[in-house]
Design a protein around this nucleic acid. Sequence first.
DNA 1: GACCCGACTTAGGACCGAAGCG
DNA 2: CGCTTCGGTCCTAAGTCGGGTC
Length: 592
Amino acid sequence: MGHLPTSESSCIIHHNCLAVLSRHSAPNVRSQWEEERYPEGIKWKFLEHKGPVFAPPYEPLPENVKFYYDGKVMKLSTKAEEVATFFAKMLDHEYTTKEIFRKNFFKDWRKEMTSEEKSTITSLSKCDFTHMSQYFKAQTEARKQMSKEEKQKIKEENERLLKEYGYCVMDNHKERIANFKIEPPGLFRGRGNHPKMGMLKRRIMPEDIIINCSKDSKVPPPPPGHKWKEVRHDNKVTWLVSWTENIQGSIKYIMLNPSSRIKGEKDWQKYETARRLKKCVDKIRNQYREDWKSKEMKVRQRAVALYFIDKLALRAGNEKEEGETADTVGCCSLRVEHIKLHPELDGQEYVVEFDFLGKDSIRYYNKVPVEKRVFKNLQLFMENKQPEDDLFDRLNTSILNKHLQDLMEGLTAKVFRTYNASITLQQQLKELTNPDDNIPAKILSYNRANRAVAILCNHQRAPPKTFEKSMMNLQSKIDAKKEQLADARRELKSAKADAKVRRDEKSKKAVESKKKAVQRIEEQLMKLEVQATDREENKQIALSTSKLNYLDPRISVAWCKKWGIPIEKIYNKTQREKFAWAIDMAEEDYEF
DNA sequence: GACCCGACTTAGGACCGAAGCG
DNA sequence: CGCTTCGGTCCTAAGTCGGGTC
């Protein structure tokens, strides 16, 4: 295998290049630099990789694992059996009880059956997968029980695969690939109420695969007996491998890891755009407030939508094809049924109550007081409409983004999310960091600032399955600690009384040690209570998404430098790799 | 301007090994 | 030591947005 360097050292160079540039440069210098290296949309000059790793082939079940139809044992053809195992593996999941899931699955399963199977198996409810399911559970159990040596062997095999296929060379750099393994076949599980749940996600073959690499590279060979769909040499894109998936008909890609030069630069660029927005956001805000009064309905709708995007960090909200995906919306696709207007609510005037499902079917629920003009406009937009009608019927993301482009080069709806997230972090850090705090307390403040952003962006998570239980465990620990404290206090009291009577050194010492014990227990109790609050506050909030995608890492790096916090306390290894550019370039006085 | 497609970013959940705790 | 909890990684779905076509 030709050009892949074995040394890691070649990776280091590019971060320093970024750092050197950034210290002296205004944001636009960078694009000049980029233009020097890559004229008009060229992403690389050299690209070589080993191609994808395919999912392991299907291994038929052992003879003794039975499938039953209508109470009778039935031996399935290999293809039908494979699809049946997908269902059997999900039997415990409530998915498999859902009407749509079952219907979609059964339809696709039947396509894999032989004609005899098809004529026999006519009802999913007569299928009994429990024996298969038990077998897989036993397998999982067996895997857990594996010896250290066996586990080590698997680990080594994975490392070998990573070493062989997990890297590529792009323009003199050895780079880590993000997802070099092809997605295995299985049953599609959409998020939320997805109309396609349960459909068969088919096995991807070399014949489905488009390879992208440079002409002067060593083209990866397809597996023996197979051919690639196509080999192309397109240096205007960053992907190495692509294929078309069969559920939505969309294209999937193999691309580089976030630590790569190409991703890092893009990330940097994203934050630079957000910083440019910072410079003109006041002007833009004044503008959209003016537009609330416009004679043109289209302009008013645009201005109200933009206000929501800015104030509430809503997503743009592209139109979606009905029936193809879960019914979710963003700002421009809000419908009348998603908001309620309250002229007065809980002592506040002009409150808008939002209730809709956003990306990933995550609920957005918020009651927001808005300015009178916005409120009146919303009333106007809703006049003579049905609940299922679009709130902004004269607006879509393309109109909005074209307008934004006129306000600032490179401005789109999502830049507001990046801008507001980053500026919020910066403000919150300033506000919450207490210089006298020790390091753990400062980190707590950091997490609080992070949390403020996560709430703004509505980054939620399902409460961990064991949340209630673990909360109860924690509570009983707290209760136990309280009792312990009460005991310790009683002991202290009696020791004091004792010392008063005896007046000797020994009893004085006893008092001192009891005092210390009380203090220690008080501290432990406080720690537990802080932990409980923290956990409760974090119950439904996911911090990682904003940390990874919305917060300019230079803010965090600067904060760490300023307060002497080791960067490792804020970013783990993966995150440090992704944000290497920022760690290199940000000084303690960095301002977003 | 509606529609479609391609390329890319953003997203939450499953899983698993390590750390923490009694 | 055995249990629970935590944190990191992997996985892949679901968005955004620009460009092309008609």
